[in-house]
Computed example of a mutant assay.
Amino acid sequence: MKFLIVLFGALLITSFPNTEKEVYLCGPRGAKKYHFSKTCRGLSNCKHEITPKKQSEAEALGLTLCGWED
């Protein structure tokens, strides 16, 4: 019975796609922070195009979460 529960749990975990959070950056280059919302107060002075990326990509670029998002 334990085997069936573990098997069922494993099937549930692997059946859902990896839904990684989309974040927003100010411009394609030069950003220092990422934002969860396009309307974040930290993006209000952005003079470039607001660019969407996956959170893991933003963190791989060395970006950190905006202070207004904490």
Rank of each mutant, 00 (worst) to 15 (best):
F36H: 06
G30P: 05
R29K: 12
S15D: 09
L11Y: 10
N45R: 13
P17W: 03
S37C: 10
L61M: 15
L63K: 01
G67Y: 03
G62A: 12
N18S: 13
N18G: 09
C40D: 05
L65M: 09
N18V: 08
S37N: 14
L61G: 00
R41D: 13
H48T: 06
V23M: 02
L7H: 06
H35F: 07
F3P: 02
S44Q: 15
Y34K: 00
R41Q: 11
S37W: 12
A31D: 05
K33M: 06
E59R: 03
D70I: 05
E49Q: 06
L4R: 04
E69T: 11
M1N: 11
E59A: 00
T64E: 08
K2V: 09
Y34L: 00
C66D: 02
Q55C: 04
T39I: 10
G67L: 08
Q55A: 02
L11N: 10
A10V: 06
Y34Q: 00
F8E: 11
L61P: 03
L7F: 13
G30Y: 08
E49K: 08
K53N: 00
K47D: 11
G42L: 03
L61T: 04
L4F: 12
K54F: 14
C46P: 07
N45K: 13
I5Y: 07
E69G: 04
G9S: 14
T19L: 09
Y34G: 03
G30C: 09
S15I: 02
W68V: 12
H35A: 00
A10Y: 02
H48R: 12
M1Y: 07
L4D: 08
V23Y: 08
K38T: 11
